[in-house]
Every structure is written in structure tokens, then in C-alpha cells.
Simulated assay, not measured.
Amino acid sequence: MKRPVNRLAQLAIGRLAIGLLTAACLCGAASADVRLGVGVPVTGPDATFGAQIRMGAEQAVADINAAGGILGQQVSVEVGDDAADPKQGVSVANKFVGDQIAFVIGHFNSGVTMPASEIYAENNILEITPGSTNPKITERGIETIFRTCGRDDQQGAVAAKFLAAQGAKKIAIVHDKTTYGKGLADETKKSLNALGITEVLYEGVNKGEKDYSAIVSKIKESGADIVYWGGVHTEGGLLLRQMRDQGVNAVMMGGDGIASDEFAAIAGPGVEGTFMTFPPDPRDRPEAAKVVQEFKAKNFNPETYTLYSYAAVEVLKQAAEAAKSLDAAEVAKAMHSGMTFKTVIGDINFDQKGDVTRADYVVFVWKKGPDGRIGYYQIK
């Protein structure tokens, strides 16, 4: 026979359950983490750069969490695949908003960063891009966007000065019609024209193309001895390989978009002698030595944007702790304050636009190293 349950006992049990639930919620709030989104091309032709940014951010988060997190809170990472496509980038940005992401590292492609950053700005999410170099990104008055890399007008000026010093006269400029590629080509063209050098050819090709016979024929007809490439390593490598296959010996020069070992793998032996602009290799900095060893232990080469991504997370931690806040607007104020951030790519500061104040592009050449492998080496 069931015993009747006392009404007072029922109320007491109910109150106890509510109390336990409230306590659980409070405990959850106390241990809430800092939500970091990483928006990159996980798939598609630019996935190599996406992997660099993701690995850099994840390693930085692991190291920061091991040291106590940010303002005593652990950092969690959510990766969004933008596939190097602006529309997909917007989808990733909207998902980050829905998932209550506080900060974003990314995106890689300037054409993706532009629309995604508008969404982040509207929703008080702070974004740091390690690889988007188009000048317009930080020219729009958005207080919560920054980059740890430089700008295309900076590397375009360095490229033009270098080519002029080499006595280059017949320069063909080819780009991939993207925000990054065309932007870089235009900035280099502008700097070359200012030095009195007029290009013999200015053409765009479609990103994703495989057959460059038509543009190679135009390069040959122009008599160019230099081909300046505005774009990334995939199309750039194919263009260079087909130039060599069709007997065009013009030297190629590009920007940071070809700074990947995959460029040499795609272009083949004809890559030797190619020039490119990029900052001094961050892997050689003493500040990066420990982190570089961490990556090597994982059999990952932290080239190009890996350490720029790692540095972006370091900046977030230092800025949040200086602001004593995890609010994007407050963290942005700290970043705009002129304070110096200690990072694996050296000491950096940000101007009021969100750009790093240190412009340090130099010229590299692709050649065989002591081990016989073709890689890129800084011209001293």
C-alpha cells in the first residue's frame, strides 16, 4: 500500500530541486569560457592558409589555457569553414553571432573579411585578421577590426621599388580578380607608375582556372621580362608552370599570397628566381623559438600566417587583461590605446585604423637551399 506524500514534503523537495538547479546554473556561469571563433578556408584551394591560421590560433589557445586562460577563464575555439567564398564567409559570421562568439581570428581572404567584418561590427564582436591585406579593410571606420599582417599598399610600394632598382622596364601585371589579388596588383601598379614605369600588360584571370594559354600568349606578345602576379599560390603556380612550358622566361614576382611551399610544388623547377614580398620570416624570431618547436613536435611547419594567427590570440589576451573586460568595445579601446603587445612576431602596436604600425615588408627569392630543396629566402 502506497503511503500518501506529505504536501509540505513535496514543497520542500521542489524547493531543493530549484535550489540545486540554480546552484548548477551559477556554477556554469562561474566556469563560462571565452568563446573564440576562427573563420578560415578549411576546404577549397586556399585551405593551406586556412590550416595555418587555425593551427596558430589553436596552439595559442592551448598555451594560454595552460597558463590560466584570459581573466581566469578558459578559451574555447569554434572553427568556421568559409571556403574562401564571401557568401560562405557571411554564413560563418552569422553562425558565430548565433553561437555567441566573443572574438574572431580570421578571415584569410580580403574578399571574405570585408562582408564578414560588417556582421561582426554590428554584433559587437572583435575581429583580428592575420592575413587579409587589402587597405580598405581598415579604412571603413570600424572600431573593432584589426590585423596583425601588413597592407597591400605597403608591399606594393616595396615591390615597385625593388623592380625599379633591378632596372625592370617591361612589366606585365596579372591578377586573379579577387579583392586581394586585384587590390595588390593595383597598389603595385600605382607605385610603379609613380616611379615612371608603365606596365606593358594589365590583365585579370578567373580564380580557379586551369588553362592559362591565352594569358601566357599575351605575356609573350608583350615582350615582358617581369610578370607581377596579384593572387595566391594556386593560380600563380599554374600560371608560372605554363609560362615555362610555353617558353616564356619572364621572371615572376608576387606578394604574400605565394608564400607557401605549395607554390613551388605547383610551379615546378621553373619557380627558381621568382621574387615575392613578405615580412622577415617570423619563424626566425627569438620570440617564436619555443612555439616553433611546439609545432615541429606536431610535424607542422608554422610558415606564413601561422605565427601571425598565434600573435593575434596573444594580443586578445593582453588587451582583455589591460581592459579588465571581455567586452569587444572595451578590448578594442585597449588595442587602440597605443600599448605595446609582446608577441611571437615581435612587439607590435596598432594605429587608430587597426593596422600594425610596423611596416616591415622585404623581398624574398625562391631558390635551392643547402639541402637542395627549393624554398624562399630573404634577399639581404
Rank of each mutant, 00 (worst) to 15 (best):
P279Y: 05
F108I: 14
T48S: 13
T340P: 00
K380Q: 15
F162P: 00
K177E: 08
K2R: 10
Q352S: 12
V40W: 12
A157I: 00
V205F: 07
G89D: 09
D355A: 12
G369C: 07
M339W: 01
D81S: 05
F49R: 04
K161W: 01
Y310G: 12
I128A: 00
L163T: 00
I266E: 09
M276F: 07
A84Y: 10
N134D: 06
K220W: 07
D225Q: 11
M276I: 09
T188E: 07
G80I: 00
I266Q: 03
K2P: 09
V251I: 13
R358C: 07
E221T: 15
E330L: 15
D281Y: 06
V112G: 04
D81G: 06
Q74C: 01
D81W: 11
A224V: 14
I125Y: 00
E314W: 10
E122V: 04
I128C: 09
L8A: 13
G72F: 04
G44F: 02
Q378R: 15
I173Q: 08
I142T: 03
T274C: 11
F103E: 09
R241H: 12
K210L: 08
V292G: 15
D281Q: 08
K342Y: 00
G255H: 03
G56P: 01
S213T: 15
A319P: 13
L326Y: 01
M276R: 11
Q74W: 00
D186N: 14
Y228N: 14
T274N: 02
A332L: 06
L26G: 03
A93N: 08
M335K: 05
A312F: 02
M253H: 06
V313Y: 01
A9R: 14
A24K: 10
N94G: 13
G236Q: 05
R358H: 08
A32Y: 02
G338E: 00
P130M: 05
A160Y: 01
K189W: 10
G106D: 07
M243V: 11
G44P: 11
M253Q: 14
P280F: 08
F162T: 02
L192A: 03
Q74H: 02
L307E: 12
T277L: 05
A172W: 14
T179E: 13
R285G: 02
N206Y: 01
G255F: 06
V205C: 04
D152C: 02
M276T: 01
K87V: 13
A264L: 10
V216G: 09
F300H: 04
I145N: 10
E314A: 09
V77W: 03
R7S: 04
